[in-house]
Design a protein around this nucleic acid. Structure first.
Lengths: 184, 184
DNA sequence: GACAGATTCGAACCATGGTTCGAAAGTCGA
DNA sequence: TCGACTTTCGAACCATGGTTCGAATCTGTC
């Protein structure tokens, strides 16, 4: 039940944005009453929090799984980009994860930001390792990582499900372009 | 006076986001009363509209100025990226321009989206021309352009004025990386 | 059928914040 | 100084929307 609510909420968040969507909308999307939402969640921010936590958690999992395998930095980065985009575009909750951090009250925000920073560090490690080993051209790993993540996170602004492009097509094109920029 | 209000409002919008900032905050930042804002602007959305219009207009100007000069696609793109970033990070109103489009009511939003689309088309033309002439590696110009603009627009999420990096440093690093990805 | 607990909801509450109103204060030429 | 106009603001208004409350309904067990 909580899962169903989260999925429904994530969908509305993606279309309308967090601040613009009301509890009554979330309730309608989840097919129950607004008051009933409070039986499962403490408040509106709590719903957003679990959306983001689930999504960032999933992204973090892919990086740790990738870290265990013996892969070239370029391939690793490609996989991360693809996974990130599928999570943002295919599943619903991915969208709100990175776009609405400021909406949370300090205690919750702190936790999400920390988790998201862990993810960003994991991605940066791939970039930095590649630069160190010569697989990637040298540069500022932090700025490069942020450029990459920015391109990825921004997709939710223009991507519309059911459009001319499948998430995988976007993922491939982005991976091509963004990894090529690191070619030595 | 309107200009001063717009600058102050843009600053608050950048830090707090549009939905989270109240009229009373804008008023405090502009050093006048909340009620007095309505002497200069019709309502809150109107303030955001003029912020965005000014900023997108400035970005559009740089592309048209660049189009008149005889430059290689790579240089053109570098200049656009640099100008875009300076506009986003150095000046205040640039931030809200691309991040808060959904907040406007339909009639205003329609106009801003149209103007921003003109800008996106101008950037895409540079990319597409380069791909056609062989200056850039072939690919999907639309997706590539969106990846670039996404990386640029996302900077407002993490960039903090007065931090370790000057806007120009970010602009250079981003231009290096994003243009290199198009190298044939 | 009856009881306890879980689940659901309509209706009302209430804080927030955008907005309006009427009047006060400033500006300026005559 | 006078009047007309511009600019300013405190206070109140009011719609929106998150939240709470108490009761009704459902679920399963004895």
């Amino acid at each position: 039940m909580r899962g169903a609510i989260l999925r429904a909420a994530a969908g509305v968040f993606r279309e309308r944005g967090f601040a613009e969507t009301g509890m009554r909308e979330i309730a309608a999307a989840a097919d129950l009453s607004a008051a009933n939402l409070y039986y499962y969640f403490k408040n509106k921010a709590d719903i957003l929090y679990f959306c983001q936590d689930h999504s960032v958690g999933r992204m973090l999992e892919t990086t740790t799984a990738l870290a265990r395998r013996r892969l070239t930095p370029a391939v690793r980065l490609r996989r991360v980009i693809a996974a990130h985009l599928v999570c943002m575009l295919d599943e619903l909750d991915g969208a709100a994860a990175h776009t609405e951090i400021d909406a949370l009250p300090p205690p919750l925000r702190k936790r999400i930001v920390a988790k998201r920073d862990r993810y960003e560090r994991a991605v940066r490690r791939i970039v930095a390792d590649g630069m160190r080993s010569g697989a990637f051209r040298k540069g500022d790993p932090t700025l490069t990582t942020r450029a990459i993540l920015g391109a990825l996170n921004w997709t939710t602004r223009w991507y519309r499900p059911g459009g001319r492009l499948a998430p995988r097509a976007v993922a491939d094109a982005f991976a091509d372009y963004l990894v090529r920029g690191l070619h030595p």
